[in-house]
Protein backbone atom coordinates (compact mmCIF):
# COMPACT_ATOMS: atom_id res chain seq x y z
CA UNK A 1 0.00 0.00 0.00
CA UNK A 2 1.08 3.56 -0.71
CA UNK A 3 1.36 5.55 2.51
CA UNK A 4 2.13 9.23 3.07
CA UNK A 5 3.31 10.68 6.37
CA UNK A 6 2.89 14.18 7.73
CA UNK A 7 5.27 15.28 10.51
CA UNK A 8 4.24 18.48 12.24
CA UNK A 9 6.71 18.82 15.10
CA UNK A 10 10.39 19.47 15.47
CA UNK A 11 12.94 16.87 16.54
CA UNK A 12 13.71 16.28 20.22
CA UNK A 13 10.91 18.66 21.28
CA UNK A 14 8.11 16.19 20.64
CA UNK A 15 7.87 12.45 20.04
CA UNK A 16 6.16 12.98 16.67
CA UNK A 17 9.38 12.67 14.65
CA UNK A 18 10.32 9.46 16.50
CA UNK A 19 6.86 7.97 16.08
CA UNK A 20 6.78 8.82 12.38
CA UNK A 21 10.22 7.31 11.86
CA UNK A 22 9.28 4.09 13.65
CA UNK A 23 6.09 3.91 11.61
CA UNK A 24 7.98 4.45 8.36
CA UNK A 25 10.47 1.68 9.20
CA UNK A 26 7.71 -0.73 10.19
CA UNK A 27 5.73 0.03 7.03
CA UNK A 28 8.77 -0.45 4.80
CA UNK A 29 9.61 -3.69 6.57
CA UNK A 30 6.14 -4.95 5.73
CA UNK A 31 6.66 -4.13 2.07
CA UNK A 32 4.56 -0.98 1.91
CA UNK A 33 5.66 2.09 0.03
CA UNK A 34 6.31 5.32 1.91
CA UNK A 35 5.42 7.65 -0.92
CA UNK A 36 6.52 10.78 0.88
CA UNK A 37 7.20 12.22 4.32
CA UNK A 38 6.05 15.81 4.39
CA UNK A 39 7.39 18.05 7.15
CA UNK A 40 5.24 20.99 8.17
CA UNK A 41 5.09 23.55 10.99
CA UNK A 42 8.14 23.02 13.27
CA UNK A 43 8.52 19.64 11.57
CA UNK A 44 10.76 21.33 9.02
CA UNK A 45 13.46 21.42 11.70
CA UNK A 46 13.93 17.68 11.11
CA UNK A 47 15.76 18.62 7.94
CA UNK A 48 18.66 20.73 9.15
CA UNK A 49 22.05 19.05 8.89
CA UNK A 50 23.36 21.39 11.61
CA UNK A 51 21.67 19.55 14.45
CA UNK A 52 24.24 18.10 16.82
CA UNK A 53 22.70 15.86 19.44
CA UNK A 54 24.85 14.30 22.15
CA UNK A 55 26.58 11.11 21.00
CA UNK A 56 24.51 8.86 23.23
CA UNK A 57 21.26 10.12 21.73
CA UNK A 58 19.63 9.26 18.41
CA UNK A 59 20.43 11.51 15.47
CA UNK A 60 17.01 12.31 14.11
CA UNK A 61 18.13 14.03 10.91
CA UNK A 62 20.66 11.36 10.01
CA UNK A 63 18.03 8.70 10.60
CA UNK A 64 15.75 10.37 8.05
CA UNK A 65 18.58 10.94 5.58
CA UNK A 66 19.51 7.28 5.85
CA UNK A 67 15.92 6.30 5.12
CA UNK A 68 16.00 8.42 1.98
CA UNK A 69 19.31 6.90 0.93
CA UNK A 70 18.42 3.28 1.53
CA UNK A 71 14.72 3.27 0.58
CA UNK A 72 14.43 6.30 -1.66
CA UNK A 73 11.85 7.89 0.63
CA UNK A 74 10.92 11.37 -0.57
CA UNK A 75 11.52 13.80 2.33
CA UNK A 76 9.89 17.16 1.67
CA UNK A 77 10.10 20.30 3.80
CA UNK A 78 7.35 22.86 3.29
CA UNK A 79 8.97 25.93 1.76
CA UNK A 80 6.85 28.52 3.58
CA UNK A 81 7.30 26.84 6.94
CA UNK A 82 11.01 26.33 6.26
CA UNK A 83 11.60 29.95 5.28
CA UNK A 84 9.94 31.16 8.47
CA UNK A 85 12.14 28.89 10.54
CA UNK A 86 15.44 29.41 8.78
CA UNK A 87 15.79 26.13 6.92
CA UNK A 88 17.07 26.58 3.38
CA UNK A 89 18.73 24.78 0.50
CA UNK A 90 21.43 26.36 -1.69
CA UNK A 91 18.86 27.84 -4.09
CA UNK A 92 16.78 29.36 -1.33
CA UNK A 93 19.88 30.68 0.38
CA UNK A 94 20.95 32.40 -2.82
CA UNK A 95 17.51 33.78 -3.58
CA UNK A 96 17.16 35.25 -0.11
CA UNK A 97 20.79 36.41 0.12
CA UNK A 98 21.68 34.18 3.06
CA UNK A 99 25.30 33.36 3.84
CA UNK A 100 24.68 29.62 4.16
CA UNK A 101 22.23 26.80 3.66
CA UNK A 102 21.48 24.03 6.12
CA UNK A 103 19.34 21.42 4.42
CA UNK A 104 20.34 17.83 5.12
CA UNK A 105 21.01 15.15 2.51
CA UNK A 106 17.92 13.40 1.21
CA UNK A 107 15.60 16.29 2.01
CA UNK A 108 14.18 18.74 -0.47
CA UNK A 109 12.21 21.95 -0.08
CA UNK A 110 8.96 22.32 -1.95
CA UNK A 111 5.48 23.74 -1.72
CA UNK A 112 2.42 22.69 0.22
CA UNK A 113 1.02 21.27 -2.99
CA UNK A 114 3.32 18.30 -2.31
CA UNK A 115 1.35 17.56 0.84
CA UNK A 116 -2.02 17.76 -0.88
CA UNK A 117 -0.68 15.68 -3.76
CA UNK A 118 0.50 13.02 -1.29
CA UNK A 119 -2.95 12.97 0.31
CA UNK A 120 -4.53 12.41 -3.10
CA UNK A 121 -1.96 9.93 -4.42
CA UNK A 122 -1.59 7.79 -1.33
CA UNK A 123 -3.95 5.13 -0.04
CA UNK A 124 -3.44 6.50 3.48
CA UNK A 125 -2.08 9.65 5.06
CA UNK A 126 -0.88 9.32 8.66
CA UNK A 127 -0.28 12.45 10.72
CA UNK A 128 2.19 12.79 13.57
CA UNK A 129 2.11 16.01 15.54
CA UNK A 130 1.29 17.78 18.74
Amino acid sequence: MKIGLLVNEGPYQHQAADSAYRFACAALAKGHEIFRVFFYHDGVNNGTRLMTPPQDDRHIQQRWSELARTHGVDLVLCVAAAQRRGICDPDEAKRNAKDADNIAPGFRISGLGQLVEAAIECDRLVTFGD
Partner: peptide, 20 residues
Amino acid sequence: VDDAGFVDLVVEHDNVQAWL
Protein backbone atom coordinates in the same frame (compact mmCIF):
# COMPACT_ATOMS: atom_id res chain seq x y z
CA VAL B 1 0.01 -3.65 19.12
CA ASP B 2 3.62 -3.29 18.09
CA ASP B 3 4.82 -0.90 15.37
CA ALA B 4 4.00 -3.46 12.67
CA GLY B 5 0.54 -3.75 14.21
CA PHE B 6 0.12 0.02 13.91
CA VAL B 7 0.89 -0.29 10.21
CA ASP B 8 -1.63 -3.12 9.88
CA LEU B 9 -4.33 -1.03 11.56
CA VAL B 10 -3.65 1.84 9.15
CA VAL B 11 -3.90 -0.53 6.21
CA GLU B 12 -7.09 -2.22 7.49
CA HIS B 13 -8.99 1.04 7.98
CA ASP B 14 -10.22 3.34 5.24
CA ASN B 15 -8.96 6.51 6.83
CA VAL B 16 -6.81 7.64 9.75
CA GLN B 17 -7.90 10.52 11.93
CA ALA B 18 -5.28 11.94 14.30
CA TRP B 19 -6.70 13.77 17.31
CA LEU B 20 -3.72 15.96 18.05
